[in-house]
Every structure is written in structure tokens, then in C-alpha cells.
Amino acid sequence: MLRELPSQTAGPYVHIGLLPAVAGIPFEPDRDWSVLVRAGVRGERIRIEGIVFDGVGAPVRDAVLELWQPDAAGRFPGHDLGADPAFAGFGRAAADFASGLFAFETVKPGRVPTADGRLQAPHATLLIFARGINIHLHTRIYFDDEATANAEDPVLALIEQEARRRTLLARRELREGRVVYRFDVRLQGPEETVFFDV
């Protein structure tokens, strides 16, 4: 049996490879990976934004984040028949070099069952890459206005300390009529975000 390659940090220049425009390279000038939606997308359009904070509370301004989620009906593009053709499912965003803020334009994801048929609460997967992160971090974004679904979610239930489940809840707000969910990631400290081993 072979073993997978060991991971190494993506480093501070990760943008060259994953988001070349952010590094200043016109490799694919017309593509904006942070927008998962096209005109006519079904479901509730939302913006997910946040900052990754390090152990001393400083923004991780070189982070690159990847988002993977189903469409508003819980179907994964490329995997499920009937998935919304106006929805990409996958996005990439860079933290802003000055503020550390990242943002995705997406839709509120639908519910997806577990292997044994229980429904999960709406969620998106977030992967985090940055200098000083030796193997990418894997977390989930849940939504704070889904209290009922969250309460029965089998993955949130795996988190032994109930207080830690809160670290995965994006906070809904309305901004000029648009729905924005705020999701900050804390790499260390009393509010350390829950990260998964999958």
C-alpha cells in the first residue's frame, strides 16, 4: 500500500498558483473565483465574509480560502442530476492584503443527507491555506438563523463541547437589503474555530 504525499504549507505566494490575478499576474484576467453564482441562480443569494485571525488576534492577510457547497436544493454541481446550472458550487477567495477580509458571493445551501439518511443542516465547507499552516484547515460554515436544523445536525452533534459549536455559526445581517453572513475564523484562543479531520 502506498501512502499519500505529505503536505507542505502553501506559503505566502499561494495566490500565484490559486488566484493569479491577486498576485498581479494576468493569467486568467476575466475570472473571479469568489463569485459562485450566475444570473438566474435559484435560491437565496447571500454573501459570506469574514477574517481569519491568528493566535494574537491579528488578521491572516495572506490566507486563501476555498468554499464548496451544494446549490439551494442541496445538489452538488457535477455530481447530482438537476443541480442548478447557474451555480458553481466551488469558490476561491483571498484575504485582502490590507484588512484580511475575504468574501464569497453564493447562495444559501440546501440540506444534504448523511450516509445513513439523516439530514444535515445547511452548511458550506471552507478550506484554509496560508503561510504557517502546514496542512490545510477544514471547517464548516453553518448559519445562525437555522436553529432547528442546527440542533439536529449530526456533525455539529459530534462536537463534544456545545459552546464550541457556536464557532461554526455564521451571523446573518442585512446590509442595504442584501443578506450577509459574517464568519470569522479563529486559529487559536478561547474561541478557536472547530476544524475537522475528514
Binding site: 493566535g55 457535477g78 458550487g89 466551488f90 504557517g132 456533525v155 475537522f196 475528514v198
Partner: peptide, 24 residues
């Protein structure tokens, strides 16, 4: 890595379709 390494254990997750799929 001292500033950026999570200190708490990872939560083990039996993969669901959210993890068993990937962008095509």
C-alpha cells in the same frame, strides 16, 4: 506556525457527501 497552528484537537468526521464530492 506558532501563531497559526490550532491548539485544540481536530474533530473527526465520517465523510458525508459534502466531503465525498469535489468540484469538477
Amino acid at each position: 506556525s506558532v501563531y497559526r497552528a490550532p491548539r485544540l484537537p481536530l474533530v473527526s468526521l465520517g465523510a458525508t457527501r459534502s466531503e465525498l464530492t469535489a468540484p469538477l
